[in-house]
Amino acid sequence: MQLTWLWRGLRTGVLTTRYPRRPERMPDGWRGTAVLQRDQCVVEGAPPSCVTVCLPRALSVEETGGDRRLRLDHAACIACGLCVAACPRGALSISNEFELAASSRARLISEHRPKGDRAA
């Protein structure tokens, strides 16, 4: 009986990924994390519609003295894709990037200040 298993195991061959020696990729439609097209985003609405639909509050608006920034926290993003549908300008998309780990929280946060919006 054990030999049958052994035979079956051997016949399966090698399936193992060579990552990280060879690069890997996730399928195209796989939702990794939200990405912001900075040239499209104007941070409009109070709050913007993407912020309203974001369940884990990965998207937020930071306001300090007239300076308005959109903050995208990749560590909080669950890649549900609701913000993609909510953005009227198509500024958000979901990428299939999987190498998301970081050694500090700061590296997982991207902030966007729309052009023409000057700090006070």
Partner: peptide
């Protein structure tokens, strides 16, 4: 920090 809900095995490996 390994983000993801859940992180895929490749993300975990990374």
């Amino acid at each position: 920090y390994i983000p993801g809900c859940p992180p895929s095995p490749l993300t975990l490996l990374h």
